[in-house]
Design a protein around this nucleic acid. Structure first.
Length: 426
RNA sequence: GGAGAGGUGUCCGAGUGGUUGAAGGAGCCGGUCUCGAAAACCGGUGAGGUCUUGCGGCCUUCGAGGGUUCGAAUCCCUCCCUCUCCGCCA
């Protein structure tokens, strides 16, 4: 949620920042400013009445104790009370309407974010050599079928399209990648491991900004719970409504979780293979820090995600997303795209974002800079570290051999127990 | 799923309609004492909103949301959560 006080104090500056994301936001912000004025006028009115009522009520108690007559005072108070009730109702309505609009405004991008739509995304750097082949590299769905490690057809039969089975060494590959990534982040990057619930409630979905933005992209249960689209939601909401101690920060958590996405409206895009599916696995990194350190924390976090690709020897590039392309809650986002030789394209495997105090404000996550000091909102960040399916795509496609086998990267061999996936090895 | 008990401030814990933001205790911070420390004693110590240049004032807040009442932590309704027992179950 945006900071209403900041909007109020420097409206033009704030609107300019928001307009870098979407020019249409300016009129919404003007509406909010009007509502804010209206609400504060109501607050002053109703609070004056309440102060009056409180004093008079004390007087009633006083008179009663002295067994004096209170009839007249009570009659006056009855009217006053009625008036308060009406105005309170009006105020509650103003509060609700203001809150609703505030929750619908995305985070203004930081100044360092390139301006424009997705075409303005900037490639910052790349790592690794693109693989070269003496034969035509196959896409992962063909490799997966030949190797007997990926069964899309049966997934579609049992559940539906976009719910693949990983079989044999494919299943072991998933398990190995999860363990490898969690080990790397906990042992070398200092993250605390966490195993979160797969379902989240509505408050949590609002807290990180999935609601109202991605409502149609989440699966909802009969009980009003959502299947988590990412562990970002569960792990960030872990500290919802808490006041952390300043010296606890930064906090960093690494969590494996299955992720569920309806991908409504994505029909026809990346329909083959496992590039875009409804259920996938992901190791997620979440950090909580003080406002002064969040920019540095973003770079650090990005480095942790990059480390996974480097260990796996997968070539990638780093993109700074443009102001019109970053997510609803994000103030700045880097995308990590891995090269996949079979489909001959770059695939997003991680998105590292700093949310400034946007999520913290929604989820009410604060910290006390010093013992006894006023609580302030933390800054939150997250990055995938990494999403599995596309990592698997790159791994299979880039490491494929002419004989149809696939080389297992050194970092995974101890987890996999083999250094090569072969058609009869499954 | 059934039966029962309960949710109060950083923590423990009192409080069943009227100066109760809330006794008492612990913790924490400051002070007195001490060479220093401990103990003892004194004082302070939740969060949000709103007005104010500031000092400070006012309003809200006792799981959440409604209701009754001039007035609710205290009464009524709905929901959520925790604990105990039973049932069921990976």
């Amino acid at each position: 949620m945006i900071d209403l006080k900041r909007l109020r104090d420097a409206p033009e500056e704030f609107k300019a920042a928001a307009a870098r994301r979407d020019a249409g936001l300016v009129s919404q912000l003007d509406d909010i400013l009007k509502l804010d004025l209206h609400r504060r006028a109501l607050v002053r009115q109703v609070e004056a009445l309440k102060a009056d009522r409180n004093h008079a009520s004390e007087e009633v108690a006083h008179l009663k104790r002295q067994r004096a007559d209170t009839t007249e005072l009570l009659a006056r108070l009855k009217d006053l009370s009625k008036m308060i009730k009406d105005q309170d109702q009006e105020l509650r309505e103003a509060d609700r309407s203001l809150k609703e609009r505030l929750l619908g405004i995305p985070n203004p991008p930081l100044e360092s974010v390139p301006e424009g739509d997705a075409s303005a995304n900037q490639e910052l750097r790349s790592w690794g050599e693109l693989p070269r082949f003496t034969f035509e590299p196959k896409p992962h769905w063909e490799l997966g079928e030949t190797l007997g490690i990926l069964d899309l057809a049966r997934g579609a039969k049992v559940t539906g399209s976009g719910f693949p089975f990983y079989t044999g060494q494919g299943s072991r590959l998933v398990r190995s990648l999860i363990n490898f990534m969690l080990d790397l982040h906990t042992q070398e990057h200092g993250y605390r491991e966490m195993w979160p619930p797969a379902l989240i409630n509505e408050d949590s979905a609002w807290g990180t900004g999935q609601l109202p933005d991605l409502e149609n992209n989440m699966y909802v249960t009969e009980d009003g719970l959502y299947l988590a689209p990412t562990a970002e939601v569960s792990v960030t909401n872990f500290h919802r409504d808490e006041i952390l101690l300043g010296d606890q920060l930064p906090l960093s958590y690494a969590a494996y979780a299955p992720c569920f996405r309806r991908e409504a409206g994505a029909h026809g895009k990346d329909t083959r293979g496992i590039i875009r599916i409804h259920q996938f696995d992901k190791v997620e990194l979440v950090r909580y820090c003080t406002p002064e350190t969040s920019s540095d924390q973003l770079e650090l976090l990005l480095g942790h995600a990059e480390a996974v690709l480097q260990r796996l020897r997968l070539p990638y590039r780093v993109l700074a997303l443009a102001s019109g392309d970053i997510g609803f809650s994000s103030a700045k986002t880097y995308d990590l795209e891995v090269w996949a030789a079979g489909v001959d394209t770059w695939l997003e495997v991680s998105s590292a974002s700093v949310f400034t105090d946007f999520q913290a404000r929604r989820a009410n996550i604060r910290y006390r800079p010093q013992p006894g000091a006023k609580p302030e909102f933390v800054h939150t960040l997250n990055a995938s570290g990494l999403a599995l399916p596309r990592t698997i795509v790159a791994l299979l496609e880039n490491n494929q051999q002419e004989d149809g086998s696939v080389r297992v990267p050194e970092a995974l061999v101890s987890y996999m127990g083999v250094d090569r996936l072969t058609p009869n090895g499954a």
